[in-house]
Nucleic acid binder design. Structure first.
Length: 493
RNA sequence: GUCCCCAUAGUCUAACGGAUAGGACACCGGGUUUUCAUCCCGGCGAUGGGGGUUCGACUCCCCCUGGGGGCACCA
């Protein structure tokens, strides 16, 4: 039997971290077993579903590399894969249940329901539908219809039965039908509710395994009942642990960025995100951290998914991203960095070969400092901006010394004599100068670094100076000298 | 309130019923380096509590506690 799993997001918001992890586990399971991974858009909430969310979800899944075999854009023999295009199907099955006496029309208004629910909670009972409309007479129904009430369709749940969910991770979980209550399968506007559409689609699409978040575990008994009533065989279930925020509650916006778009824009690499997320709730016997794609597919198994929820740790994700950035070929990294530079206006849309070589070299020099691709904007500004600011602490610590002004002046003079500024001849120059002036090398290097970059940290001094070139280095030293004078820093008086 | 799930360091996790409870992030310290980063070395730190079962329990059972999730005309 071919394994078929699906990811069924609803386009009421951006794809978020938890959704990605669910999609990932489904995708890995399918790929591992050479099965099919299906994408289905659950857009039955007319009010909240938006097409741009659908597009963004699809776009981000592609970006992550979680490709699907059936679904939007690729089609498939069990479509359509948008629930909004399957309304007639749900209607048909609802009619069937109605005809069989397994469902009925309910005319209760949301307000009435709310009131009774509160009452039941007060009495310490599970807040379930009380069956108010279960046995309406023909006359009563007529009356409601005349009032203009639009009915929902409710599924009849018999009391006193036990529903056993066989979960691949948790074993048998038993629910009593009494806590379920007759639930709605068709809203008054004719669209199906989640439980109903889900069961029908999973059946019709021949889904064999439902891998979803643990928050769906309590929905499962209702769905089991529907499978029974409809005469379908339920799939196998695996309810994977939730992803929580730092405070231990379900990951949400108040924990910071949760939408995958954010991570994408910040410059997280798709595979770093995938690799990190794979480790949330799953592990190998040796706690391996890094996986290549094929390796992850090969090693992944539901048996090794654990049951307890996991806290999402952005710091570890960032670390992992940095690791992948370091491991990447420079040329690839350059190409990923260029869009950020363009957007910032540091390089033109058309990149000539000289500019490319410069970016390449800068990438080599800065790559170990990048955690995110966008970090390049913070740490490499001085390579592209001539009028960078001097860091206050750097001025205080490195420039505010008597010897600095004459030193920089001397360095300038010496560099000016050079035919060409290279890493080598600059190093020779500075080391000789330190000996001649009885200064430590650090006392020579640090002020120059601040003069050239405005800050105390950064790539090797000789290397970065070579990238800037003789003319620019001299210009920057002059600028610093002027600046020192103007600001009456100790070294210039 | 009610039902369900879960429980190894701050975090992610490993450990046939039998190791000094292993690894990773973070944190702290040291080394390398002109700075930062990288890299290398080292350190801190965990089986929630109580009962059982067993020669022996992180592991099995029960209770407690704690945390999470569901209980929508949301999915």
């Amino acid at each position: 039997m071919q394994i078929r799993v699906r990811f069924a997001p609803s386009p009421t918001g951006e794809l978020h971290i938890g959704g990605v992890r669910t999609a990932l586990f489904n995708w890995l399971f399918a790929r591992h077993h050479k099965g099919r991974f299906i994408l289905r858009i659950e857009d039955t909430d007319i009010l909240r579903s938006q097409e741009n969310f659908t597009n963004s979800i699809i776009d981000n899944l592609k970006w992550l590399g979680l490709n699907w075999d059936e679904g939007p854009e690729v089609g498939g023999e069990y479509g359509p894969y948008f629930q909004s295009q399957r309304l007639a199907i749900y209607k048909k099955y609802a009619d069937y249940l109605l005809k069989e006496g397994k469902a009925y029309f309910c005319y209760c208004t949301p307000e009435e329901l709310e009131l009774r629910k509160k009452q039941m909670q007060k009495e310490g009972k599970p807040p379930v539908y009380d069956g108010h409309c279960r046995n309406l007479s023909y006359k009563e129904r007529e009356k409601f219809e005349r009032e203009g009430r639009k009915p929902t369709v409710r599924f009849k749940v018999s009391e006193g039965i036990e529903l056993k969910v066989r979960d691949l991770l948790r074993g048998e979980v038993v629910f009593k039908s009494d806590v379920l209550g007759d639930f709605i399968i068709l809203k008054s506007n004719g669209t199906p509710t989640f439980n109903f559409a889900n069961v029908i689609d999973d059946s019709l699409m021949k889904i064999t395994h439902v891998i979803r978040g643990e928050d769906h575990l309590s929905n499962t008994p209702r769905q089991l009942l529907l499978y029974q009533a409809l005469g379908f065989n339920p799939p196998l279930y695996a309810h994977i642990p939730m992803i929580l925020g730092k405070d231990g509650s379900k990951l949400s916006k108040r924990h910071g960025a949760t939408s995958i778009s954010y991570y994408r824009e910040k410059g997280f690499l798709p595979w770093a995100v995938v690799n990190y997320l794979a480790l949330l709730g799953w592990s190998t016997p040796d706690s391996q951290q890094f996986f290549e794609k094929e390796e992850l597919i090969e090693k992944f198994s539901l048996e090794r998914v654990n049951k307890s929820p996991a806290v999402f740790d952005p710091r570890k994700l960032e670390w992992m991203n940095a690791e992948y950035i370091r491991k990447m070929e420079t040329e690839k990294l350059v190409n990923l960095l260029i869009p950020y530079l363009k957007k910032k206006g540091w390089v033109k849309e058309e990149i000539d070969s000289a500019t490319y070589r410069k970016i390449f070299r800068i990438t080599e020099l800065e790559r170990d400092r990048l955690h995110l691709l966008s970090d390049i904007l913070e740490i490499a500004d001085f390579f592209f901006e001539e009028e960078f600011a001097y860091d206050t602490k750097a001025v205080e610590k490195r420039l505010n010394k008597e010897y600095v002004y004459p030193l920089l002046k001397r360095i300038k003079v010496e560099i000016d004599k050079m035919e060409h500024l290279s890493e080598e001849n600059l190093e020779v120059l500075l080391r000789n100068l330190s000996r001649e002036l009885s200064l430590s090398t650090a006392e020579v290097f640090h002020p120059l670094r601040v003069a050239l970059t405005g800050r105390m940290k950064g790539p090797g001094l000789f290397e970065l100076a070579a990238v800037l070139g003789k003319e620019e280095v001299i210009r920057r030293i002059n600028r610093t000298l002027d600046w020192l004078k103007k600001h009456k820093v100790k070294s210039s008086v």
